[in-house]
Design a binder for these strands. Structure first.
Length: 371
DNA sequence: CATTTTAAACACT
DNA sequence: AGTGTTTAAAATG
C-alpha cells in the first residue's frame, strides 16, 4: 500500500530550535549539494562551520544544502547512548575500549533526549527514508540518503561509532520512516546488505566477560571516519575472500530458476567471527579488531552518482580521491587477496557527511595524505 | 550505464 | 531465530 506519501515531508527534526546540543554533538551536517532533501535543508550550525574540520563544506551558495540532519534519536539498546554530557572524549576510532556492555540494555529513548525541550513535539518527524520510491510517485521528493549514508549517520552518532545491528534498526525506526510496519522487514535486509557490502563498515566482536559471548558491533571504519564519508556500497565492497564460496554449496539464485550458474558455497569454514586466537586469520576478513591505528588504507575509491551529488567534497578533505596506489599500504585488510578487491570504477568520490561528531577527531594521522 | 534498493538463498552461530 | 554474505534483478537517474 501506499507506504506513506511523503506528503508533508517536513522533517523538522527534533526540536528545531533545539540544537540538541548535548554537548559535543556537532550534529550532522550533511551537505547535499543538490538539495537532496529540499525540506531538509538543515541549518548548519554556524559554529561548526568554523570548525577546523575540513569536511566538505557546503560551498555556500552552491545552492545545495544538505541532507536532513538526522537527529539523534536513538533507541539503542546496546549502548546507553548517553552522550558525554561533559565532553568526554569518546574513544577514538580504532578502539575497542572496554566498552561496558553491561549497559547494554539501558537505552535512552529519543524522547528522553528531546524531552528536554518543552516544545518538542518530536513528531516522528525526522524520518527520512532512503529513496523509498515504491513505485508510486516519488518524484516529489528526490530521494533520501541511501542506506549506506544513513547507516553511516547512525554509526557516526553512536558512541564508539559502533552499534549492534539491532540498534541500527532502532535508529532507522527512529530516524527514518521505517519501522512503521512491523511486517516489512525488507529494510532490515537492506541494512544488513549494506553493512556487509560497504567497506566503510566493519564488524567487530567485543568480548565481554569471561564466559560471555562476544557481541558483535558494526563500526565505522577508521577511514570512513576520517574521510567523513563513505562510498557507494556496490562497488565499494569489501574484499571478497573466499570464505564460504569456495567449493560446493549452492546457493541457488532464488530469483529465477533460469540462471544456474554453478555457484558453490562451501561449507568450509568461515572463521571470521570472534577473533579468537585460534581460528587463524586465514581468510583475513575485514574486521580486525586490533586496535591498530593504522591509517592510510586507501580503499578503492569509487564513485557514486547519487551521493556524489549530495556530498561531494569540494576540495579534498577526504582521503579519497586518490585511488589506491598500487602496492603499498593495505592496512587491516589483511593480506589475503592478492588480487585486489575493489574494482575501481572510473569516477570516484566519497560520500562525505559531516565529520567527527563524537570524539572522533583526528587522532590519527592526517587524513588527506595518504591517499 | 552506474548506483541503489529489494528479494531471496544460504552459512553460521 | 538472528545475523552476516552474496547473487541477482528491478528501479531509478
Amino acid at each position: 500500500m501506499p507506504p506513506r506519501q511523503y506528503a508533508g515531508y517536513s522533517f523538522p527534526r527534533v526540536a528545531d530550535g533545539e540544537p540538541c546540543s548535548l554537548g559535543p554533538l556537532p550534529q550532522e551536517l550533511i551537505h547535499d549539494p543538490n538539495g537532496y532533501l529540499d525540506s531538509y535543508r538543515s541549518h548548519l550550525t554556524p559554529t561548526m562551520a568554523g570548525a577546523p574540520l575540513e569536511v566538505l563544506t557546503p560551498q555556500a551558495g552552491g545552492g545545495h544544502s544538505d541532507w536532513p540532519a538526522l537527529q539523534h534519536s536513538h533507541v539503542f539498546k546496546d549502548q546507553s547512548y548517553n552522550y558525554p554530557m561533559q565532553l568526554e572524549p569518546l574513544q577514538p576510532p580504532s578502539d575497542s575500549p572496554p566498552s561496558p556492555l553491561s549497559e547494554v540494555s539501558s537505552y535512552h529513548s529519543p524522547q528522553s533526549l528531546a524531552a528536554s525541550s518543552p516544545s518538542m513535539k518530536t513528531q516522528t518527524a525526522d524520518r527520512l527514508s532512503p529513496r523509498s520510491s515504491t513505485g508510486d510517485n516519488r518524484e516529489d521528493r528526490p530521494g533520501h540518503p541511501p542506506y549506506s549514508v544513513l547507516i553511516y549517520q547512525a554509526l557516526k552518532d553512536a558512541p564508539g561509532n559502533k552499534l549492534q545491528l539491532q540498534s541500527i534498526y532502532s535508529w532507522f525506526e527512529a530516524n527514518t520512516d521505517k519501522g512503521g510496519d512491523p511486517n516489512a522487514k525488507g529494510w532490515q535486509n537492506s541494512i544488513r546488505h549494506n553493512l556487509s557490502m560497504n567497506a566503510g563498515f566493519e564488524a567487530v566482536k567485543e568480548e565481554v566477560g569471561p564466559g560471555k559471548k562476544a557481541v558483535n558491533f558494526w563500526r565505522l571504519t577508521p577511514e570512513a571516519i576520517h574521510s567523513g564519508g563513505i562510498q557507494s556500497t556496490t562497488r565499494y565492497r569489501k574484499l571478497q575472500h573466499h570464505k564460504k564460496a569456495i567449493s560446493l554449496g549452492h546457493r541457488g539464485p532464488a530469483r529465477q530458476p533460469s540462471e544456474p550458474k554453478g555457484v558453490h558455497a562451501t561449507k568450509g569454514f568461515k572463521s571470521r567471527g570472534t577473533n579468537s586466537p585460534h581460528t587463524e586469520r586465514a581468510e583475513g576478513y575485514h574486521q580486525q579488531i586490533s586496535n591498530n591505528p593504522s591509517l592510510g588504507p586507501d580503499y578503492g575509491p569509487t564513485s557514486l552518482p547519487a551521493m556524489q551529488r549530495y556530498m561531494q567534497h569540494p576540495i579534498g578533505p577526504i582521503v579519497g580521491c586518490s585511488p589506491m596506489i598500487p602496492g603499498n599500504n593495505t592496512v587491516f585488510v589483511d593480506t589475503a587477496e592478492p588480487g585486489l578487491a575493489f574494482d575501481v570504477g572510473r569516477s570516484h568520490d566519497w560520500y562525505v557527511l559531516e565529520s567527527g561528531s563524537n570524539g572522533v577527531h583526528d587522532s590519527l594521522g592526517s587524513p588527506g595524505r595518504s591517499s
